[in-house]
Design a binder for these strands. Structure first.
Lengths: 156, 156
DNA sequence: TATTGTTATACTCTATAACTATA
DNA sequence: TATAGTTATAGAGTATAACAATA
């Protein structure tokens, strides 16, 4: 009696699992989509021996040569204690260089090395390929999709 | 000379940090939006002493009484070894009950207890409030936004 | 006193692999 | 042999707090 309401066929494999209202919650869909996107991108960049977070850091440093670790932390929305090991790894790989600021010796200024520029260029190829796949999925709605995502981030 | 290209004002606080193409990558926006949404929701449900993942599990169990741990793992896209501690916590809180299946004694069937039903009802209030906030942000585009998120998850 | 960056530490969430018990 | 669930363990990715150096 108790098991007569089982959503699985008697004695065998499950049928459909009903997610209930979960399937129409934006938050749940957001989590699943982000996970899928992140994993697909991680697979790509790891062929270059790097991680998504390192790619983002290289990109920001490239576009803001001389920025400090605090600047970077703010840009990627991470604590400074998260940034330290991230950039230490990049420095060990000779992709960035750190130099104490002359105006304020507490600060480290960050720049890509030539190898860092080359690595970033290679990663851009992957990132663009990844984004083209996402573009194909969202199609004509890309601009709207992007702006909705940004609004969720900004307003929540 | 070297620091003349600094994106920060001389001797003082950073100006704008330029994210470069990052700001138009769907993957990056997806990560930021998901993080914002997750944190906002986590803050809500923790007032009820629970976590987002536990809410999702309660919801799925409610809608599929008698399902097994493997069924649940598949539904929320997690490994069975991730599900074990999740449901152990819920059982310790007396929110669910586990009973070995009569057809196959390897399997545990899961159901909410009355306290679990009450907890879920309380959480639904939070979830709906959270989703109403998201609704307000995406406005008229909710259906489209949701379907795009689902497509990203399905096709990537 | 306040800020930059480092370190020690810990927490969350997740998975892999080896195991038990059942099938 | 294969599957359901548990356990031990590890690894990302993150943050908090205390600290040294500098402002």
């Amino acid at each position: 009696m108790a098991e007569s309401r089982l959503p699985v066929s008697v004695n065998s494999r499950p049928q459909e699992i009903d997610l209930g209202p979960l399937s129409d919650f934006i938050g749940f869909a957001l989590r699943n989509a982000q996970e899928a996107s992140f994993r697909a991108f991680a697979r790509r960049v790891e062929t270059a021996g790097l991680k998504p977070g390192q790619f983002a850091a290289l990109m920001v440093i490239h576009h803001n040569p001389g920025l400090t670790q605090m600047d970077l932390a703010q840009a990627i929305a991470r604590d400074k204690s998260t940034v330290t090991p991230l950039i230490q790894d990049l420095q060990r790989l000779d992709l960035i260089e750190r130099k104490p600021s002359e105006q304020d010796r507490r600060r480290n200024t960050l720049r890509l090395t030539p190898a860092g520029e080359r690595a970033l260029a290679g990663l851009m190829t992957h990132a663009e390929a990844h984004d083209r796949r996402l573009d194909a999925i969202v199609g004509e709605h890309k601009a709207l999709f992007l702006s909705l995502l940004k609004r969720v981030n900004a307003e929540l």
